[in-house]
């Protein structure tokens, strides 16, 4: 009986931890989107005021950013600097695809960054700033939407994890 109780408790605990991990992913996603918005505004400022070449501007944004966003901009800067032939959209996509695996972002946000890769560096200052601000606005809208639902969704994920664990424990034990 004791063994059953311990087993059931472990299953419930496992389910709860899984739910907690899912809830934390939501918070991490929101944090990354917010950091991306800041990074894009910073990149727009670098382009508008400093007119630094893209590798340098991306590296500077990386230094001012944190976590996975820092990694993204640092890798983009290095890849663009290495790119000596053809448009940089291909390089941007490749870096983004590799980075997406380690980030908490989902398709919607990745799509915004992907579209930006097709425009970045190709036009004059005004167009670049417009494109970056547009991307930042779209991400900002996503962040606002996530923020309004993140607590509710996180709680829901946690409860689902606990409930799933309890259900599994009842079925197995």
């Amino acid at each position: 009986m004791t063994q059953r109780l311990i087993g059931a408790s472990l299953i419930v605990l496992g389910g709860s931890l899984y739910g907690l991990a899912l809830a934390r992913t939501l918070h991490a996603r929101l944090r990354e989107v917010r950091e991306l918005v800041d990074a894009l505004h910073l990149l727009a400022a670098e382009i508008a005021h400093v007119r630094a070449p893209l590798p340098e501007a991306l590296e500077r944004v990386a230094r001012a950013s944190r976590g996975t966003v820092r990694v993204l901009f640092s890798e983009l800067g290095a890849a663009v600097a290495r790119c000596s032939e053809g448009p940089i959209g291909g390089v941007w996509s490749a870096v983004l695809a590799a980075w997406a695996d380690q980030s908490s972002l989902e398709g919607e946000e990745i799509d915004v960054l992907q579209r930006l890769g097709g425009l970045i560096g190709r036009t004059g200052v005004d167009d670049q700033v417009r494109a970056l601000r547009h991307a930042a606005e779209r991400l900002g809208t996503i962040a606002n939407r996530l923020e309004s639902s993140v607590e509710r969704d996180a709680r829901l994920r946690l409860y689902l994890g606990v409930a799933g664990g309890v259900t599994l424990a009842i079925l197995l034990v």
């Binding site: 630094a52 940089i88 560096g121 200052v125």
Partner: peptide
């Protein structure tokens, strides 16, 4: 591509 490479992929910087 020559212009893209000459500007380090940064047309705005050489505009």
């Amino acid at each position: 591509d020559i212009l893209v490479a000459a500007s380090q992929g940064s047309y705005y910087a050489v505009e």
